[in-house]
Structure formats: C-alpha cells, structure tokens
Amino acid sequence: MLAADQYLMVGVVLFGIGVIGFLTRRNVVVLLMCIELMINGAGLAFVSFCRQTGSLEGQVFVLFAMVIASVEIAVGLSIVLLVFRNRATLDVDEMEVLKW
C-alpha cells in the first residue's frame, strides 16, 4: 500500500503548476485551465487524505468542488465570450482599461 503522501505530493505539484501557469500565461482560456489544474490538485489532496483517514467527507467535498469548477468555468467562459465579442482578444494583458 502506498503512502497517501505521494498522491498528496502529486496534488501539490498539480496545484503549483496551475499557479505557475496562471502567473505566466496570457491567454484567458489557458488561465481558466490553470484554475482547473489547481482545483484538481486540491481534489487529489482531498482524496488522498480521505484514503488516509477513512472518512468520506473529502470525497464528498471533491464532488462538490467539481460542480463548482464546472459552474466557474461555464460562467468564466461566458464572460470570455463577452470579452471576445467586445474586443476580439483573449490576451489578458490587453484587458487593462481599469487601472489606477
């Protein structure tokens, strides 16, 4: 039997990669995908803890997290569509009318 630590570590790395991606990429869609990566990392952590403790709460949490993720993505993408319709761009750095 493997230690849950290793799964956890994979989750951590996925989360981290998501963060790295979020900070370095400029395409809005990619940013949303990075958030997906982060959520999955968290999910993996949850499930591994679940396995460790034998409680189901973690799995339930992951289930809801998936729903949340999908809702966020749906809303996010609809806003992306709105943005694209307005400015024909997906480059997040070009969305800077609002500043100081």
């Binding site: 799964y7 994979v10 999955n40 999910g43 993996l44 499930v47 679940c50 396995r51 799995q59 992951v62």
Partner: peptide, 14 residues
C-alpha cells in the same frame, strides 16, 4: 490521470 489516481485511492465513484 487524476481520475486514475482517484480510482487507486479507493474513490471509484469520483
């Protein structure tokens, strides 16, 4: 791949 790991972590439904 994550789904795969879920399965390995006794979370088949997930």
């Amino acid at each position: 791949a994550v789904a795969w790991m879920y399965a390995m972590l006794s979370a088949p439904f997930l």
